[in-house]
Amino acid sequence: MTRSAGPVGWRVPTAVVLAVLFVAVLLCTRAGAGPAILDRPLLSFLAERRTGPLTVLMTAITTLGSVYCLVPLAVLGALARSRLARSWWPAVVVLLAVGGTAVLTFAVKVVDGRARPPAGVVAVVGEDFSFPSGHTSNTTATIGVLTFLVYGLVRPGRPRVLLVTGAVLVMAAVGLSRLYLGVHWFTDVLGGYLLAGAWLLLVTELADRLSPGRPPSP
Rank of each mutant, 00 (worst) to 15 (best):
R3V: 14
R3F: 02
P7A: 14
G9Y: 02
V12Q: 02
P13M: 09
V16N: 02
L18W: 14
A19G: 15
A19P: 05
L21H: 08
F22S: 08
L26I: 03
L26H: 01
L26V: 05
C28P: 00
R30M: 03
P35T: 06
D39R: 02
L42N: 03
S44A: 09
L46K: 04
E48N: 05
R50T: 07
T51M: 00
T55C: 03
T55S: 13
V56S: 08
L57S: 02
T59I: 01
T63S: 13
V67M: 08
Y68P: 00
L70S: 04
V71K: 04
P72Y: 06
A74E: 12
A78E: 08
A78P: 11
L79Y: 09
L79I: 15
R83Y: 00
R83S: 04
L84S: 12
R86P: 00
R86M: 03
S87K: 00
W88D: 01
V92M: 15
V92Q: 09
L96G: 13
A97E: 09
V98S: 08
V98A: 10
G99E: 10
G100W: 06
T101L: 10
T101I: 10
L104Q: 12
F106D: 04
A107K: 06
V108T: 03
R114F: 08
A115L: 14
P117L: 03
V122P: 00
V122E: 13
A123M: 13
V124Y: 03
F129N: 02
P132L: 09
P132G: 11
H135K: 11
A141F: 12
A141S: 12
G144R: 13
L146H: 04
F148C: 07
R155H: 14
R158N: 00
V161M: 11
V161E: 13
T165Y: 05
V168M: 14
A173K: 09
S177M: 08
R178K: 10
R178A: 06
W185Y: 14
F186E: 03
T187A: 05
D188M: 03
L194D: 05
L200W: 11
L200Y: 13
L201H: 11
L201S: 03
L201M: 15
L201V: 04
E205V: 06
R209F: 01
L210I: 05
S217H: 12
